[in-house]
Amino acid sequence: MVGVVSVIGSGPSGISAALELAKDNSVLLIEQAGMLGGKLNELSCKGEIECLECGVCSGLKLIDRVKKEKKIEIMLESKIVGVSFLESKACLRIEQREQTVERLVDGIVLATGHDIYKSNEETDRVISGARFEREFRLGIAHDFEKGEKVAFVQCHGSRDRHFNYCSRVCCKHAARFAKRATEKGASVTVFYLDLRDKKMREIENVRYIRAKIGEFVLDNNQVVVRYTSENEEPCEDKYDRIILSTGLLPSSSNQALASMFRLELVDGFAERSYAPLPIVTAGTLRGPMDIIESINSGYQSAKELMSKMNAKRE
């Protein structure tokens, strides 16, 4: 056993990092919520006829492995409230259910995740992709229906007037639900500025419109989408349901995290730490990425941490 390490956050990157580190270390996995998984708990399988490779199932399987791994100690409902850097270790002050404990660790993986852009244009018929998936998983949002007119609006909250970077996951997310909608017999339109994922373009029976969205107007039981076409012409169409592909944002906790662990923030995301102890970041704390990319990021960050810990001992 090399040492004691802590992984803070138990989303896709946190659980994969914990499993990788547990091969040679004792791992303290700290999660602020009451269950493992982070935003995985808000996601659902999107395939019905075939697997659409969204990564949710892979993440859930990793959670089961973490729960069975004897070298991983899990602390739920726990929050880091302070850290002190000693000569060769860090002392984490952890608040858990109104009690504060201190734990010494040799290295840290920060995998605290991201936030989702919250649109002020949401209504009962205009909803974000994140909200739709959460409600779909819980059985609140009904599945797509034959003859239903559905529009997916891409880049809402990223690559537009709100944030100028690409969230990377939106095209894949919308593509999987658009495919499901067409399989159910719905009429699907995708409004986009730029499609980064080639799978989005490969879906059959989908109408693609490159346009700038103006506004959504409720008209009885439908929504009127007013937009400017690629030819700069004003247009409008009616739909039964609008799903907004909302962007990924840096977590609101990143500023406090940066101060505590001496992180360098770029556009609100953190790629590196300048603390005297080996500390690495993983997953969407580093920047937008999908579930599979986050899982792989966790594995790579764990290996990076081990390399830094070994170098420090030499």
Results as ranks from 00 to 15, higher is better:
1 M>T: 01
2 V>H: 10
7 V>A: 13
11 G>K: 09
12 P>L: 07
13 S>M: 06
14 G>C: 00
15 I>P: 04
19 L>C: 12
21 L>I: 09
21 L>A: 06
27 V>G: 06
31 E>W: 03
31 E>Y: 00
36 L>R: 03
37 G>Y: 01
37 G>H: 05
40 L>W: 03
41 N>A: 05
41 N>R: 08
47 G>Q: 11
50 E>P: 01
53 E>I: 11
56 V>D: 06
59 G>H: 07
59 G>T: 14
62 L>Q: 07
70 K>R: 13
70 K>C: 02
77 E>D: 07
91 C>F: 04
94 I>Y: 12
95 E>I: 10
96 Q>A: 03
96 Q>R: 10
98 E>Q: 12
98 E>D: 15
99 Q>M: 13
108 I>F: 03
108 I>P: 11
109 V>T: 10
109 V>G: 08
119 S>D: 00
119 S>T: 13
125 R>Y: 11
126 V>S: 09
129 G>V: 08
130 A>G: 08
140 I>H: 06
140 I>T: 09
141 A>C: 12
146 K>E: 13
146 K>P: 02
151 A>E: 07
153 V>W: 10
153 V>D: 06
161 R>W: 03
164 N>T: 13
168 R>G: 02
168 R>L: 12
175 A>W: 04
181 A>W: 06
184 K>Y: 13
191 F>V: 04
192 Y>D: 12
195 L>N: 12
202 E>Q: 13
213 I>A: 05
214 G>W: 00
219 D>Y: 09
219 D>M: 12
222 Q>P: 06
223 V>D: 01
237 D>R: 15
258 A>C: 11
261 F>Y: 04
267 D>Q: 14
269 F>M: 07
269 F>V: 09
270 A>H: 06
270 A>W: 06
271 E>L: 14
277 L>Y: 08
281 T>L: 15
282 A>M: 07
285 L>Q: 11
288 P>T: 10
293 E>A: 15
294 S>F: 13
297 S>L: 05
298 G>I: 05
313 R>W: 10
